[in-house]
Amino acid sequence: MTTTIERPHAAPKPPWHRRAIERARRRGIDVRTLPTGAAGIILAVMLVYGEVAYGQVLQASTLSNLLINNAHFVILAVGLSFVILAGGIDLSVGAVIAVSSVAGVMLVGAGWPTPLAIAAMIGIGTAFGTASGVLVQHFGVQPFIATLAMMFLARGLASMLSTTPQRLPDDSSFRLLGEPWKLIDGPRVNDLMASAGLVVAVVVVVVAAIVLQRTRFGRTVYAIGGSESSAALMGLRVPRTKLAIYVISGTLAGVAAVVYTARLGTAQNITGMGWELTAIAAVVIGGTLLTGGYGYVVGSVIGALVLGLMTVLITRDGGVPPEMTTIITGGILFVFVMLQRAVVRRRR
């Protein structure tokens, strides 16, 4: 994808980061993996720093809690990866989680069996995703506006359903999904844990990675992000794929709602406010280019975990005022886009 341009001899010496990238390229490293690799390194550095500075970070219980508590967020980021890789954007996911979880909890409260309620929750996500996709693909509405409309619609509907927190009944089998299982009973409370939600997240990540890397559909997603018109000229199924990515994103938002609701046991109409932007941040931190075409699902997972770990570390530190959280999130995001800027040359 990246083209190498021969520099004339008289050209000034390129800046250090360009030279570093050239060196990496000569050694046969795919430079497109650099931002994602860097995200992985940052995650590792954060883990080690946390262990050294605060202790009890690199241990089974903390790490499994990190994964369990961020399972829904990982699923959300994976869904957004599809859309962003294809050069689109989905602002509706946070609000879809709200309407889906409020509806799901109310349905369970009304006596629906758990599997049926879960199917309804995922179905709600699919419906919103399909609506966004149809608006974008068949009516030529800009993705930003189409998904903004769906965001407003979902948030409004959630508020019409209820403006008070809804609780799952204590004996509902829905809660089992979020119940942590002890895999290894460690000393004191240092247990290795997992939950059904975490398993769902892992399955979603693996399937998404295989689909994006190994299937015709996945490669079409990348091709559209690279250049939509070229993809269409190559005979790829652009319209179908563009519709599908929004359906996937919406559906995964529904799945994320199931996982989140099961863990928390409550749902509210203001749940997920601003999550779409944090999820976009996670995807970008993971090395996916917002203009589409470059990036990996694994990166989005790392991005989600970086943000999750940051919250844990800030809580552990205790000295950082909570109002600094968003500033630090912004700062991390900034560092990563600068890194991407250095790696990927301006394409136009």
Binding site: A95, L135, H138, F139, G140, V141, I145, A146, L148, A149, M150, M151, F152, L153, R155, G156, L157, S159, M160, T163, N269
Partner: peptide, 23 residues
């Protein structure tokens, strides 16, 4: 309820976008 306002906004956006859409 004013919390439900966004839903009406969505209806207006979709209506206006469809009116402006080429199709």
């Amino acid at each position: 309820s004013s919390a439900a306002t966004p839903a009406f906004k969505a209806v207006v956006i979709v209506a206006l976008c469809l009116l402006q859409s080429a199709t």
